[in-house]
């Protein structure tokens, strides 16, 4: 599965469009990570627990999107966009969407 965030796949010709595909996940952080983050917050720097959490969540949303594209018979997703929205205290939704296409 080829993914790009531009309107084409460089070096390849698009032969068929399948329309919009998307994937999303809503994640909450757990208390253990929160406590560690509060401690780390005194000295500053990277909060690795949160970085991992968001990376995992994006990965899952991406997998859901590519699965949807595969089911349609596509072999590439173009024009990918990300959206992060905080929907409740301590929880956020990660949404990824793009256009499923078939390339040569």
């Amino acid at each position: 599965m080829i993914l790009t965030n531009i309107e084409s796949v460089p070096g390849k010709k698009i032969v068929e469009h399948y329309g919009l595909v998307s994937g999303s996940t809503v994640r909450a952080k757990h208390v253990g990570r929160d406590i560690m983050a509060s401690l780390k917050n005194i000295v500053g720097g990277e909060l690795k627990g949160y970085t991992e959490l968001l990376e995992d969540a994006r990965e899952q949303a991406r997998e859901r999107m590519t699965k949807q594209a595969e089911e349609l018979g596509a072999n590439a997703v173009i024009n990918i966009r990300f959206n992060t929205s905080s929907i409740a205290q301590g929880a956020s939704e990660l949404y990824i969407y793009g256009t499923a296409v078939r390339v040569e």
């Binding site: 993914l3 790009t4 070096g11 390849k12 005194i42 000295v43 909060l47 970085t51």
Partner: peptide, 17 residues
């Protein structure tokens, strides 16, 4: 073009006291 790859990177960073 030989290879196309979607890449991303992220970091969560906080202010100190």
């Amino acid at each position: 073009v030989a290879n196309v790859q979607f890449v991303s990177g992220s970091v969560v960073i906080s202010y100190d006291y």
